[in-house]
Design a protein around this nucleic acid. Structure first.
Lengths: 241, 241
DNA sequence: CGGGTTAAAGTCAATACGACCTTTAAGGGG
DNA sequence: CCCCTTAAAGGTCGTATTGACTTTAACCCG
């Protein structure tokens, strides 16, 4: 902060961590990378990957480092943005631990390389996790829910959906991202019209992809545009609430 | 967090604070509440109000408490939302201090009651602060910039603009909020059509307000809607980038 | 070459929006 | 008391966007 009520009030020391919500699309499912905790508390329970912020490191750097450690890839290829901070006093039984959650989006990653440490990492489908019974460690279920909503909203107003696609990709690949993240089908024709006309979203590579059946699809790579305006709204987007 | 690389790596203890960006509209200006620092570092410099998160308190509670202390009002009347966390290792010369910034929006507040402590608080116009030469303490200029952009974006997709208005208010009052925050004039007629048709945004009180001149304006209070869809986009909203 | 399959492009009505104009309801001055 | 000013409220119209749907294109297979 900046001020402690005139310098009188002592700070309550806290540990600061970053936690990562790494989303990818595998098949027809939105998946998140989880680790199985090897230590107390919540030993054996699934949790989001994360770790302490190290001295001299800022929050983004810590998140980027953890991302690289957890995925095995250098995380420079993935979209990474801060979600928000979580600091309930009892969110960690060991004491005051404030975590800064990050949202990472990436194309289908090779395999959850067991991190540099010994924790077992694996992809889990998000659907059953948020609506279901599986309970995550700490407040990670809340974080996951918030991250999912953030990701869904980001698809509306930005071009990050392309971050889920391995280049080069087709319009159908991109549409599948929207359908999987939003959990609803989209009209293929209208979707194509929208994204191909959004300046800077897609750049044609000139190539085509031939599938087992059907007309070959044109291939694209990510364009320079970050924002998407007008937005691509979820159809049944509540008119109010 | 959740995990410290197997429990091996020690935490770097940090102080956790909340800082508040409290926006209001005074006359034709968007203003932010700033305090003049009475202690080192940055003694005498303007800074965002804020303070340490206390033991047993969560982040929202700390922000709500600081808000009440700084404005003198019970902050329950104001819109309050977390902006994001800032944690550069050198953002505070006293050591690692991670701050969680909050964005607060409220109607023209009576006067910056000197907080419970002795700090001098006052409203400052945002325009000169973000584009100008005045330098704030710590990284508060960055936080202010981010808060302004968040507020501008929130007006597009939500109904929080009404949080700036003292109830009851007129459509012109609400339009002025958009114009001041976005820094651009809006067409009165089209603006009315948009906001009055957005279900749940405005609730007519039945009353009218008679000004010095002109037809009396209908009075409204805030409706139950939180989201605004379709959004009310800033006219020159960049088509891409 | 004809059928199956998917991509890509086109049609059309409904809607939303920006620019602009007209009417309404007050107060004030002559 | 009528007219002028002022601002709210409501209407018009051309354009752009969207959603639902149809049509054409390109490739594989047998």
């Amino acid at each position: 902060m900046s001020e402690n009520s005139g310098g009188r009030r002592p700070a309550d020391p806290a540990a600061v961590t970053v936690d990562l919500v790494i989303f990818t699309i595998r098949g027809d499912e939105l998946c998140v990378l989880l680790i199985e905790r090897g230590n107390a508390p919540y030993r054996g329970r699934l949790a989001l990957p994360g770790g302490y912020v190290r001295p001299g490191e800022n929050l983004d750097e810590a998140a980027r480092r953890e991302l690289a450690e957890e995925t095995g890839l250098d995380g420079r290829r993935l979209h990474l943005e801060q979600l928000r901070a979580y600091g309930d006093p009892d969110r960690d039984p060991r004491g005051r631990v404030v975590t800064v959650a990050y949202l990472a989006l990436g194309p289908d990653l090779p395999v959850p390389v067991a991190g540099s440490d010994a924790r077992a990492a694996r992809w889990e489908a998000v659907g059953p996790l948020v609506s279901g019974t599986t309970s995550l460690a700490f407040d990670h279920a809340d974080i996951l829910r918030d991250a999912l909503e953030r990701a869904r909203a980001r698809l509306e107003y930005t071009t990050v959906a392309a971050a889920f696609c391995m280049e080069p990709f087709t319009v159908a690949d991109l549409r599948k991202v929207y359908e999987v993240v939003w959990g609803a089908p989209l009209d293929p024709s209208n979707f194509r019209r929208k994204v191909t006309r959004a300046e800077g979203f897609l750049e044609p590579t000139g190539g085509r992809r031939v599938l087992e059946a059907g007309r070959p699809a044109a291939l694209y790579r990510r364009g320079p545009a970050k924002a998407l305006s007008p937005p691509l709204l979820r159809s049944g987007d509540q008119v109010s609430r």
